[in-house]
Amino acid sequence: MQLSLRIALIIATLIYLFFILRAIRRKKLQISLSVFWIFTAIALIISLAIPNFIEQISKWLGFEVTTNMIFCVTIFIAFYLIFSLMILISDLKRKNVKLIQEISILKKKVEDIESNMKL
């Protein structure tokens, strides 16, 4: 990888890290969820800063082309992310159903009491 490309990528990653930190500071992202994004940014910077780092690892693991390893890792991470989001959605859905039920029952109770008081 050429030096100029590496520097450009490192700068891009730093900007990415800046946006993540800004989002956390403005409380748009929970800290527990942001750990993942900070780690990916740090891992990216490290692997870009050390010359031939990615190439060496991919050779060592037995990938024929370096980009194959990058695609492979990226897809795995994306799968993991989608899966954890699905778990999160299922959990939210369940809680949402419970909220709707409880609120609706409460509303009915309140209406019953109000109509009783009028009588």
């Binding site: 159903v97 709707i100 039920q101 609120i103 609706s104 029952i105 509303k107 009915k108």
Partner: peptide, 13 residues
């Protein structure tokens, strides 16, 4: 006598 769900839940909910 009725309960009005504030949002659609489907038959199970």
């Amino acid at each position: 006598n009725h309960i009005n769900l504030i949002n659609n839940l489907g038959i199970g909910g």
